[in-house]
Write a protein that binds this DNA or RNA. Sequence first.
DNA 1: CCTACCGATCGGTAGG
DNA 2: CCTACCGATCGGTAGG
Lengths: 197, 197
Amino acid sequence: MATEAPTRRRAIEDMASALFRERGYAATSVRDIARALDLQGASLYAHVTSKEDVLWAIVDRAASTFETAADRAAASSRDGDAASRLAALVRAHVAVIAADPELAGVFITEWRHLSPARRDAVLTRRDAYEERFRAIIVDGMAAGLFSPTDPAIAATFVLTALNGLAGWYRPGGRLTPDRIADHYAELAVRTVTEDHR
Amino acid sequence: MATEAPTRRRAIEDMASALFRERGYAATSVRDIARALDLQGASLYAHVTSKEDVLWAIVDRAASTFETAADRAAASSRDGDAASRLAALVRAHVAVIAADPELAGVFITEWRHLSPARRDAVLTRRDAYEERFRAIIVDGMAAGLFSPTDPAIAATFVLTALNGLAGWYRPGGRLTPDRIADHYAELAVRTVTEDHR
DNA sequence: CCTACCGATCGGTAGG
DNA sequence: CCTACCGATCGGTAGG
């Protein structure tokens, strides 16, 4: 029972995630969030210091979730070849989106509404994250496993395709998260491997 | 000289495209658009009937541009195999984005701010557009040229990767539109072709 | 295309 | 967590 504050705060973030993803940050008012939680608009400010603060909390947590999942995928696939390491990274990314599409979706599309300093911080983290993809692609090319490609272009191509999942994934859809991960991992690996027919 | 009205209207749409893409539709005010054109906020209404009307004009024109480009690509690659038809479609899509990233970017990300009726109309057209990709993939699979894949998943994967270009393309960047089209066409075709090593 | 103006809503604060 | 309230800004209209 001593943990009412963090729970309340989290409920606000979760509701905000859902609304930000559905309508966008700028089109969602503080009163929209409050109303969805049966609160008065001004009452939200007992728990948060500003609207942007809520967005930042969501984006920061989402970024950490992606990073942690990628760390685990990298550790558990460390001894595999580049193809299996790329597949593990893709699977981790898909799993994070499927586990909380609202959180991931806001991170992917709404970070531009942050203040310049925070936006820069997010861009730096996003670039470091994309670098994981580039590094595996470079490794795979060096090992002769992947065909020669512009690694930056290939990494961006794959990562934007993965992020697109946050735009269309709905729980209970035709495919389970695991099946989607199967498909996406295969498509991503093929993207960097030559057609040898 | 008799063509002042359409030119003026178009200048408003172009400025709105740039601002909507940079900050998003909801975060851009009618006065922002007017100010960028050295007009008073209310003066815009001599040329447009509402803010949403401007968004609709942009989205509708962008959709038509993509459709026309895809029609031409389909016509000129009609006699090729599925791989060359997919490559032609990808090249057309990339060219439309590179020719006007603001227009394409607003179409891709801001259509959800349209009224429900217009949003539905856009969704229908987007689905028909994506169906072009699915149809080629199905054809290629039937011909044994493409490896067995879920066509809907593969089409979405490729199309979201292509649309991601609108998020990062900047004129005068490291690669010309043509080189980007080369890379994207190859990556897209690989995505649906098996690795036979 | 401008001035003047409208009601509504915005994010946020004061004070309990 | 509420009531009451703040100045600023929103999309849009009237009337020239």
